[in-house]
Design a protein around this nucleic acid. Structure first.
Length: 198
DNA sequence: CGGCCGATTATCT
DNA sequence: GATAATCGGCCGG
C-alpha cells in the first residue's frame, strides 16, 4: 500500500472523487491503524459551484480550499458534526472532495470505542459524520497534510472499481442550493451489490 | 419502514 | 441573528 501523493489530489475534484472510491482511509490513533475502504464521495468545485462552501468567497473557514491540494478540510456543521474533505485542484482554485462512507477493515474494535452507541450495527459508518466519529476525527485535523504519514491521517491507494460498479447521483443535503448545482450528479458511490459485506 | 423534527454551535451577513 | 455538505429518536401506518 502506498500513500496517495500530492499529484493525486492536484486534479479537479470530480476526478479525485471518482478515484478515491476503493482507496483506504487511514487514521493512526494511539499507535493503532483504524482504516476503511472509501465507498462514497462528493465533489465540490470552485466558487461558481453554489453547493461549495467556497462560493461564499475566501474566508477564514474556506481558506484551506484555496491552498495547495492534499490537505484535509474538516468543518463543523449542524451544531454537532465534523465532516472530512480532501482539498483538490491547484492552489488558488478552491475545490474539495467530501468523504461520505467507508467500509471498516482495520481497527474496528477501536472504531467501536470511538462510536459506542451504534457500533457494529448495519450502516454504522455510512455517513460523513458517522465515519469521522468512528475514526476520531474532529477540528484539530483541519489543514493536516494527507500526504504525510506523520500526521496520523492519510489515504492509501487501493483497488480501482470498474465504472460499471459506480453510481453517480446528485449531492446530498443541498436543498436550499439553486439549480443546476442542487441536482448536478457529483456524488459518487460504489453500488451495494459490488461490496462483499460480512 | 418511512418520514418528520429537534439537537447545538461555528461561521458568515 | 440566521443558517447549516447530518444524525438519531420518535411517531404513524
Amino acid at each position: 500500500m502506498s500513500i496517495n501523493q500530492r499529484d493525486f489530489y492536484a486534479r479537479p475534484a470530480l476526478a479525485v472523487a471518482r478515484d478515491l472510491l476503493g482507496c483506504r482511509l487511514v487514521r493512526v490513533q494511539s499507535g493503532k491503524r483504524l482504516a476503511g475502504l472509501i465507498l462514497e464521495t462528493e465533489a465540490y468545485q470552485g466558487e461558481e459551484d453554489l453547493g461549495c462552501h467556497a462560493s461564499a468567497g475566501l474566508t477564514p473557514r474556506t481558506s484551506v480550499m484555496y491552498g495547495p491540494p492534499g490537505y484535509a478540510y474538516v468543518y463543523f456543521t449542524y451544531g454537532m458534526h465534523w465532516l472530512l474533505n480532501a482539498v483538490t485542484d491547484q492552489a488558488g482554485t478552491p475545490a474539495a472532495v467530501l468523504i461520505r462512507a467507508i467500509l471498516p477493515l482495520e481497527g474496528t474494535t477501536a472504531m467501536a470505542k470511538n462510536r459506542p452507541y451504534r457500533a457494529l450495527q448495519p450502516g454504522w459508518t455510512d455517513g460523513p459524520a458517522k465515519l469521522t466519529q468512528a475514526l476520531g476525527i474532529d477540528g484539530i485535523f483541519n489543514r493536516v497534510d494527507l500526504c504525510d504519514r506523520s500526521d496520523g491521517l492519510y489515504i492509501e491507494s487501493g483497488e480501482r472499481w470498474a465504472d460499471a460498479m459506480i453510481e453517480q447521483t446528485p449531492r446530498v443535503g443541498l436543498n436550499s442550493v439553486p439549480e443546476p448545482w442542487r441536482s448536478i450528479p457529483w456524488r459518487f458511490l460504489v453500488q451495494k451489490g459490488a461490496i462483499d459485506v460480512g
